[in-house]
């Protein structure tokens, strides 16, 4: 496929200024998402998944700075757009589901109204049709008794129901690019399947491209086309979902898989990943940020990382891949 991807992130680097120094949170991050494709972004917490999403959406907090890179979307570089044009795109073309749904909802506005607001602002609905369309969205995310639940305030709903409201808001305007930050954490697996099917439907019908941030590798493997693995602000591996699951090549990807609860293992057999993320404030960070935790380290590993192609659309940044 040589079509232009819906989103192409190239060489993205982000730094945060903190009291204790500059943190190099993302370094040379690059990946793309095709039209209609769902790409999972996985990795431990702190690996830079959310910051990647915030940078693309142009909503990094004030201490954060993009120091290099581009995010090409519909012929324009999102990182170079001015605030007004970006705001225009957000909500209509670009949509994001945040971690922590409860805090993202307005606590004193009925949930049906909150969806209707978005439909009016970005979805071309009129004040008159918006309430009906909002109820339709509640139905799609399988909220029981949507007519009456539209009248509820967030505190009257369970955690998972608030989550579904957020998803309904994000999907209401049929965005061209959806960034979903752990959208199904806190949902039961049947509801999760409904949400994933809904994302799949919009991808199929409307060609929506999705970046799906998750720490559930089995979920990523089942529903996503490709998986991108992040570690300490680097992309260490990117591969078709099933292939990554069956044959992880980066030592870190393999460890992540081994820590995922599966069908056969017992708790005693499961292993956590030794060590932690390196301190990203260090000025002498090694070329491979996983080297401090790696069991396969070689002498070459201090040299700048190679990008090795392991198969079709399968790349790994490692001197000694599995």
């Amino acid at each position: 496929m040589s079509a232009v991807p819906a989103l192409a992130v190239e060489d993205l680097s982000v730094e945060f200024r903190t009291r204790s120094g500059v943190v190099k949170v993302l370094e040379h991050v690059g990946f793309s998402v095709d039209k209609g494709e769902t790409v999972a972004l996985v990795g431990e917490s702190g690996s830079g998944k959310s910051v990647t999403a915030f940078a693309v959406m142009g909503i990094l907090d004030a201490a954060g700075k993009v120091t290099s890179g581009r995010a090409m979307f519909g012929g324009a570089d999102l990182l170079a757009l001015n605030e007004h044009d970006l705001a225009e795109q957000r909500g209509r073309e670009l949509s994001m589901i945040f971690q922590n749904p409860r805090t993202a909802l307005n606590p004193i506005r009925r949930v049906g109204r909150q969806i209707a607001d978005v439909l009016v602002r970005h979805g071309g609905a009129t004040r008159n049709d918006a309430p009906r369309a909002a109820i339709e969205m509640l139905k799609k995310v399988r909220i029981p008794d949507p007519e009456r639940r539209a009248e509820a305030y967030p505190f009257e709903l369970s955690g998972g129901m608030c989550q579904r409201i957020m998803i309904a808001i994000a999907l209401a305007c049929r965005p061209a690019l959806l960034i979903a930050d752990e959208p199904t954490t806190g949902l039961d697996v049947t509801t999760q399947a409904v949400i994933m099917d809904l994302i799949g439907e919009l991808a199929g019908e409307a060609g929506m491209a999705t970046i799906f941030i998750t720490h559930d590798l089995a979920l990523a493997a089942e529903y996503c086309d490709r998986i991108v693995v992040m570690h300490a602000g680097h992309i260490v591996e990117a591969a078709p979902a099933r292939e990554l699951f069956a044959h992880p090549r980066h030592p870190y990807s393999a460890k992540l898989l081994a820590a995922t609860p599966g069908e056969t293992v017992s708790l005693a057999d499961m292993a956590s990943i030794p060590g932690g993320l390196p301190d990203l404030r260090r000025t002498d960070l090694p070329a491979c940020r996983y080297s401090g935790r790696c069991e396969r380290r070689l002498d070459e590993c201090t040299q700048p990382l190679p990008q090795r192609t392991m198969g079709e659309r399968h790349v790994v940044a490692c001197w000694n891949p599995l």
């Binding site: 954490t185 992540l256 820590a259 609860p261």
Partner: peptide
């Protein structure tokens, strides 16, 4: 849901 907010790697240790 004591481990819902945790990474798989940390989750293993907490469950153990």
């Amino acid at each position: 849901e004591p481990t819902a907010a945790l990474d798989v790697s940390v989750q293993v240790v907490i469950l153990q």
